[in-house]
Amino acid sequence: MALPFDDRAQWLADCILPHERALRDWLARSAFLSGDRIDDLVQETYAVLAQRADVASIRNPRSYAFQVAKSILLQDLRRSRVVAIGSVTDLEMLDQPADMPSPEQQAIGRDELARVATAIAAMPRQTRRAFQLRRVEGLSQRDVAAALGLSESTVEKHIVRGIKLLMQQFGRGGKASSDASISSDEGRAFAEDRARNRAEH
Protein backbone atom coordinates (compact mmCIF):
# COMPACT_ATOMS: atom_id res chain seq x y z
CA MET A 1 0.00 0.00 0.00
CA ALA A 2 1.43 3.33 -1.03
CA LEU A 3 1.86 5.86 1.70
CA PRO A 4 0.92 9.45 1.12
CA PHE A 5 4.38 10.58 0.15
CA ASP A 6 6.01 13.83 1.03
CA ASP A 7 5.30 15.62 -2.22
CA ARG A 8 1.66 14.60 -2.06
CA ALA A 9 1.46 15.80 1.55
CA GLN A 10 2.93 19.10 0.38
CA TRP A 11 0.42 19.34 -2.44
CA LEU A 12 -2.43 18.67 -0.03
CA ALA A 13 -1.01 21.30 2.32
CA ASP A 14 -0.76 23.89 -0.44
CA CYS A 15 -3.84 23.15 -2.48
CA ILE A 16 -6.46 21.43 -0.34
CA LEU A 17 -5.91 22.32 3.30
CA PRO A 18 -6.60 26.04 2.74
CA HIS A 19 -10.02 25.08 1.37
CA GLU A 20 -10.95 22.50 3.98
CA ARG A 21 -12.90 24.98 6.04
CA ALA A 22 -14.91 26.06 3.02
CA LEU A 23 -15.55 22.43 2.15
CA ARG A 24 -16.81 21.71 5.65
CA ASP A 25 -19.01 24.80 5.64
CA TRP A 26 -20.41 23.86 2.29
CA LEU A 27 -21.22 20.32 3.42
CA ALA A 28 -22.87 21.59 6.58
CA ARG A 29 -24.84 24.27 4.79
CA SER A 30 -25.92 22.49 1.64
CA ALA A 31 -26.16 18.86 2.66
CA PHE A 32 -27.12 19.35 6.31
CA LEU A 33 -24.52 16.88 7.46
CA SER A 34 -23.62 16.45 11.09
CA GLY A 35 -20.15 17.28 12.32
CA ASP A 36 -19.32 13.58 12.67
CA ARG A 37 -20.38 12.83 9.13
CA ILE A 38 -18.41 15.76 7.83
CA ASP A 39 -15.32 14.52 9.66
CA ASP A 40 -15.75 11.12 8.01
CA LEU A 41 -16.30 12.64 4.62
CA VAL A 42 -13.28 14.90 4.91
CA GLN A 43 -11.11 11.90 5.74
CA GLU A 44 -12.56 9.97 2.82
CA THR A 45 -11.94 12.91 0.52
CA TYR A 46 -8.32 13.15 1.58
CA ALA A 47 -8.00 9.40 1.07
CA VAL A 48 -9.07 9.75 -2.55
CA LEU A 49 -6.81 12.73 -3.11
CA ALA A 50 -3.87 10.97 -1.45
CA GLN A 51 -4.20 7.88 -3.62
CA ARG A 52 -4.93 9.53 -6.91
CA ALA A 53 -2.12 8.62 -9.27
CA ASP A 54 -1.47 12.11 -10.48
CA VAL A 55 -2.48 15.50 -9.17
CA ALA A 56 -0.49 17.69 -11.51
CA SER A 57 -3.34 17.64 -14.00
CA ILE A 58 -5.83 19.00 -11.47
CA ARG A 59 -6.21 22.56 -12.51
CA ASN A 60 -8.58 23.67 -9.79
CA PRO A 61 -7.84 21.64 -6.65
CA ARG A 62 -10.55 23.39 -4.66
CA SER A 63 -13.38 22.45 -6.96
CA TYR A 64 -11.87 19.02 -7.46
CA ALA A 65 -11.93 18.39 -3.71
CA PHE A 66 -15.55 19.57 -3.58
CA GLN A 67 -16.38 17.22 -6.42
CA VAL A 68 -14.74 14.26 -4.71
CA ALA A 69 -16.60 14.95 -1.48
CA LYS A 70 -19.84 15.28 -3.36
CA SER A 71 -19.42 12.02 -5.23
CA ILE A 72 -18.56 10.13 -2.04
CA LEU A 73 -21.63 11.60 -0.43
CA LEU A 74 -23.88 10.67 -3.33
CA GLN A 75 -22.48 7.16 -3.35
CA ASP A 76 -23.21 6.82 0.35
CA LEU A 77 -26.72 8.08 -0.10
CA ARG A 78 -27.38 5.64 -2.91
CA ARG A 79 -26.06 2.81 -0.81
CA SER A 80 -28.00 3.64 2.30
CA ARG A 81 -31.55 2.41 2.44
CA VAL A 82 -32.97 5.34 4.23
CA VAL A 83 -33.01 8.18 1.82
CA ALA A 84 -32.71 11.46 3.57
CA ILE A 85 -35.14 13.49 1.52
CA GLY A 86 -33.69 16.78 2.59
CA SER A 87 -30.23 15.69 1.55
CA VAL A 88 -31.22 14.52 -1.88
CA THR A 89 -33.22 17.58 -2.73
CA ASP A 90 -30.44 19.79 -1.67
CA LEU A 91 -27.83 17.70 -3.35
CA GLU A 92 -29.45 18.51 -6.65
CA MET A 93 -28.46 22.03 -5.88
CA LEU A 94 -24.98 21.15 -4.73
CA ASP A 95 -23.41 23.04 -7.50
CA GLN A 96 -19.77 23.63 -7.66
CA PRO A 97 -19.22 26.88 -5.86
CA ALA A 98 -17.81 29.27 -8.40
CA ASP A 99 -14.18 30.18 -8.30
CA MET A 100 -13.60 32.39 -5.39
CA PRO A 101 -13.66 36.10 -5.74
CA SER A 102 -10.38 37.58 -4.68
CA PRO A 103 -11.52 39.07 -1.36
CA GLU A 104 -12.44 35.62 -0.14
CA GLN A 105 -9.14 34.31 -1.39
CA GLN A 106 -7.40 36.98 0.60
CA ALA A 107 -9.43 36.22 3.65
CA ILE A 108 -8.36 32.60 3.40
CA GLY A 109 -4.69 33.50 3.32
CA ARG A 110 -5.06 35.65 6.40
CA ASP A 111 -7.34 33.21 8.11
CA GLU A 112 -4.97 30.35 7.51
CA LEU A 113 -1.94 32.11 8.83
CA ALA A 114 -3.91 33.33 11.81
CA ARG A 115 -5.08 29.78 12.44
CA VAL A 116 -1.56 28.40 12.48
CA ALA A 117 -0.47 31.25 14.71
CA THR A 118 -3.37 30.68 17.09
CA ALA A 119 -2.73 26.97 17.28
CA ILE A 120 0.94 27.48 17.98
CA ALA A 121 0.29 30.18 20.53
CA ALA A 122 -2.16 27.86 22.26
CA MET A 123 0.37 25.05 22.57
CA PRO A 124 1.68 24.33 26.03
CA ARG A 125 5.16 25.74 26.51
CA GLN A 126 7.17 22.57 26.14
CA THR A 127 5.14 21.41 23.17
CA ARG A 128 5.55 24.76 21.49
CA ARG A 129 9.27 24.68 22.09
CA ALA A 130 9.65 21.17 20.71
CA PHE A 131 7.42 22.06 17.80
CA GLN A 132 9.33 25.21 17.05
CA LEU A 133 12.73 23.55 17.19
CA ARG A 134 11.55 20.79 14.88
CA ARG A 135 9.43 22.73 12.44
CA VAL A 136 10.87 26.23 12.45
CA GLU A 137 14.52 25.61 13.29
CA GLY A 138 14.53 22.32 11.42
CA LEU A 139 16.20 20.20 14.08
CA SER A 140 15.55 16.46 13.91
CA GLN A 141 13.43 14.97 16.67
CA ARG A 142 16.58 13.46 18.11
CA ASP A 143 18.32 16.84 18.20
CA VAL A 144 15.23 18.46 19.69
CA ALA A 145 15.35 15.87 22.44
CA ALA A 146 18.99 16.65 23.11
CA ALA A 147 18.36 20.39 23.07
CA LEU A 148 15.50 20.21 25.51
CA GLY A 149 16.93 17.47 27.70
CA LEU A 150 13.96 15.23 27.01
CA SER A 151 13.74 11.64 25.83
CA GLU A 152 13.07 11.13 22.15
CA SER A 153 9.79 9.46 22.93
CA THR A 154 8.68 12.49 24.95
CA VAL A 155 9.58 14.79 22.06
CA GLU A 156 7.56 12.55 19.80
CA LYS A 157 4.61 12.92 22.16
CA HIS A 158 4.96 16.69 22.03
CA ILE A 159 5.01 16.55 18.24
CA VAL A 160 1.87 14.41 18.28
CA ARG A 161 0.19 16.89 20.53
CA GLY A 162 1.24 19.80 18.33
CA ILE A 163 -0.20 18.05 15.27
CA LYS A 164 -3.45 17.36 17.11
CA LEU A 165 -3.80 20.99 18.08
CA LEU A 166 -3.26 22.05 14.49
CA MET A 167 -5.73 19.42 13.32
CA GLN A 168 -8.35 20.98 15.53
CA GLN A 169 -7.66 24.38 14.05
CA PHE A 170 -8.25 23.05 10.57
CA GLY A 171 -11.13 20.82 11.52
CA ARG A 172 -14.40 21.71 13.13
CA GLY A 173 -14.91 24.94 14.99
CA GLY A 174 -11.40 26.11 14.39
CA LYS A 175 -10.87 26.90 18.03
CA ALA A 176 -8.86 24.54 20.14
CA SER A 177 -12.08 22.85 21.07
CA SER A 178 -11.45 21.51 24.49
CA ASP A 179 -8.25 21.84 26.37
CA ALA A 180 -9.57 19.37 28.88
CA SER A 181 -9.74 16.55 26.38
CA ILE A 182 -6.30 17.33 25.09
CA SER A 183 -4.71 17.30 28.47
CA SER A 184 -6.40 14.09 29.42
CA ASP A 185 -5.25 12.47 26.19
CA GLU A 186 -1.89 13.86 26.85
CA GLY A 187 -1.95 12.60 30.41
CA ARG A 188 -2.81 9.18 29.13
CA ALA A 189 -0.09 9.35 26.52
CA PHE A 190 2.51 10.31 29.05
CA ALA A 191 1.29 7.72 31.49
CA GLU A 192 1.58 5.06 28.78
CA ASP A 193 4.98 6.37 27.92
CA ARG A 194 6.03 6.07 31.50
CA ALA A 195 4.74 2.56 31.70
CA ARG A 196 6.61 1.66 28.53
CA ASN A 197 9.80 3.22 29.79
CA ARG A 198 9.49 1.22 32.98
CA ALA A 199 8.96 -1.90 30.98
CA GLU A 200 12.01 -1.19 28.85
CA HIS A 201 14.34 -0.52 31.74
Binding site: M1, L3, P4, D6, R8, A9, Q10, L12, A13, D14, I16, L17, D40, V42, Q43, E44, T45, Y46, A47, V48, L49, A50, Q51, E112, L113, V116, A117, I120, A121, R128, F131, Q132, R135, V136, G162, I163, L166, M167, F170
Partner: peptide, 25 residues
Protein backbone atom coordinates in the same frame (compact mmCIF):
# COMPACT_ATOMS: atom_id res chain seq x y z
CA UNK B 1 -10.66 6.76 6.15
CA UNK B 2 -7.33 6.07 7.81
CA UNK B 3 -5.35 6.76 4.67
CA UNK B 4 -7.20 10.04 4.34
CA UNK B 5 -6.64 10.99 7.95
CA UNK B 6 -2.94 10.21 7.64
CA UNK B 7 -2.65 12.18 4.41
CA UNK B 8 -4.42 15.10 6.06
CA UNK B 9 -2.24 14.91 9.19
CA UNK B 10 0.88 14.85 7.04
CA UNK B 11 -0.43 17.81 5.06
CA UNK B 12 -1.02 19.71 8.28
CA UNK B 13 2.47 18.83 9.39
CA UNK B 14 3.91 19.99 6.06
CA UNK B 15 1.80 23.11 6.28
CA UNK B 16 3.15 23.96 9.71
CA UNK B 17 6.44 25.01 8.20
CA UNK B 18 4.49 28.07 7.21
CA UNK B 19 5.04 28.86 10.85
CA UNK B 20 8.45 29.90 9.63
CA UNK B 21 6.89 32.85 7.90
CA UNK B 22 5.29 33.79 11.18
CA UNK B 23 8.85 34.01 12.28
CA UNK B 24 9.38 34.62 15.85
CA UNK B 25 6.75 32.41 17.41
Amino acid sequence: RRMGALARARAIWAHADRARSLGAL
